[in-house]
Design a binder for these strands. Structure first.
Lengths: 332, 332
DNA sequence: AGATGAAATGTTAACGTGAACAAAAAAAGC
DNA sequence: GCTTTTTTTGTTCACGTTAACATTTCATCT
């Protein structure tokens, strides 16, 4: 492996001069700089980041963490997050991706290994991790989940608002018997979307009904199961708000399986606007959540923190948006 | 940050003794070892991997590369790959995820930064990367795409075989007018699935028809567009083999949009068996590809290479499997 | 021309760890 | 008890880089 000392020897200068030349220091005369750069590229030199990191106390690594990679994270959510971050992180930063459930303890999470951390947080169970990172004084941005703790950069979508818009849309279409299939217990998103649902109903003077509130876990199967429960009620709902699109798709299947139709018999609204939702039959009305935008913002913020900008910790809200398609019918 | 020297001072030993104790060397007496470990955990010591890497010429990093993260890789494929690798990589290995299209040149890909590389390869355009990695003598496992080059560990699914089974299934159901919607031009998978399609037809004495061969690019939109082209033919096919599930879903939508039905009017087969395919209406008949298994095998192999095992380079084939659901009808 | 100062380059040490070699301590053999 | 061997610990250096400080080179001013 070729080092700066090899270059130094060939260029007849000291290795420090080479270091400075490669880092484009103004201390080096143009001709020497050019000569060194020339030799470096001829030898196909590439810097040893371990040595660099050791002496500079920087890791050149950004960590992107999810609550879990294997469960509870829908594929498209995951990919959109990664896309966003990847778009921002430049080539000389490493990007490290892991699920928190892969860790027994967080002792390996420290400043030497991570210049900055982006947490795509989905659950209160992430809090110990957040405290750990804060205590280690690693620049941190938490995405997707509202952290009350002061001093944390926080970027999220206003899910409550989105859910309210979705349910209001159902109410405007004449529905009064509106059920909800909830997400994973303990996830902040689950709670926010429930709140939006409840706010919309309460504002319209529709009483909350406990048997219209079904627990799900964000996958298609639980959407299916949840819908079956609702259909078995004496008085099934005429519309269902599903806390994400995956469950909405499961729910639609349960409806079909029972010989009923969407939206004629039952209207469905989802949440997320994943790629598939415009290819379901009928096309799914849903709430678009700007996942990629959130992760772009998150990556930009963490990079800015890493290079030492003292940003004032704040919350950034990315707007959700109701996407009206064909899965909601007017109830007369 | 606490170092082994800090521990050494407290334990009244040399830093080398500490190093040995922490690495559980048999040279150290049990009592000293215990004392050192005790102090280390009290001080909350965690090793500096940069220093370690520098002196040991190891990076503790495995790179997982995709042809592209933003385009051409379906979310579920991506997540399944990552899941598989994550399951195998232990906690003291870093995992880096990147798309090759993020790189202008590969100078930053070297032995210092990567102990081993897993390439989830989808296109011949990855070949320069493969050569680069080989030349740098980094342990490499190529997944998903057949590399003729000798000396490369290669793990893949037999897509030709899977595609043939899918099309044979159509033939067995009485179809003779069978079209194909292809994947991205230049992707190996595209070619293999086409070959399987052609083999099945030829074996059944059905002539290949160029207007039944439609170019797609693995996304839902192109499936939709491709199907529309087929429907506009004087003599549309009675069955379509779509080179992946995403396009199959797009195709089904195009059929619905034209007032036709699946499978009564046109039968559809997909490829991949993504999570959604059992939640489409009708449920999609498709070919299951063991993506997660492939990446588990890949990760295991690369780790084994990294710790110095001299595996004989070989190809491992993971079997595809036809999953019969409801999108194919008997043609009488 | 010599002193002065600025610009360019060189010397040395440091980052935290592991490894080769050296030394001390303990155990074994007589 | 003293040598010899074995076990355990210590010293020193190396990894490739940057940074503080030292030195040389060169232009400028009187």
């Amino acid at each position: 492996m070729v080092t700066i000392k090899d270059i130094a020897k060939l260029a007849n200068v000291s290795h420090t001069t080479v270091s400075r030349a490669l880092n484009n220091s103004p201390l080096i005369k143009e001709p020497t700089k050019r000569k060194i750069l020339e030799i470096a590229s001829q030898l196909n030199y590439s810097p040893n980041y371990n040595a660099k990191s050791l002496v500079m106390q920087k890791s050149h690594t950004i960590g992107l963490f999810f609550t879990s990679i294997s469960t509870g994270t829908s594929p498209s959510f995951f990919v959109d997050s990664l896309k966003g971050v990847n778009r921002v992180i430049s080539q000389d930063y490493n990007l490290f991706v892991r699920g928190l459930d892969d860790y027994d303890d967080y002792s390996s999470i420290n400043q030497q290994r991570f210049d900055g951390i982006i947490l795509m947080s989905q659950s209160v169970h992430d809090n110990p991790f957040i405290y750990h990172v804060l205590q280690k004084e690693i620049p941190l941005v938490v995405l997707n989940r509202d952290i009350e703790e002061a001093g944390i950069m926080n970027i999220l979508s206003n899910d409550t608002d989105g859910a309210r818009k979705a349910v209001e849309h159902l109410v405007e279409n004449g529905h009064r018997k509106i059920a909800i299939i909830e997400g994973i217990k303990g996830f902040k998103s689950t709670q926010m979307r429930l709140e939006g649902y409840q706010e919309a109903l309460t504002a319209s003077g529709i009483p909350l009904q406990s048997d219209y509130r079904i627990r799900g876990n964000y996958d298609m199967e639980s959407g299916y199961a949840g819908m079956e429960k609702l259909l078995s009620l004496k008085e099934p709902p005429t519309a269902v708000f599903c806390s994400n699109d995956d469950m909405a798709i499961g729910a639609m299947n349960a409806i079909f399986a029972n010989g009923l139709k969407v939206p004629e018999d039952i209207s469905i609204v989802g949440f997320d606007d994943i790629g598939f939702s415009q290819y379901t039959t009928p096309r799914l009305t849903t709430v678009k959540r700007p996942v990629e935008k959130i992760s772009v913002l998150g990556a930009e913020t963490v990079l800015s923190l890493v290079i030492g900008n003292k940003e004032i910790p704040k919350k950034i809200f990315a707007q959700t948006e109701l996407v009206v398609r064909d899965s909601v019918a007017k109830r007369i």
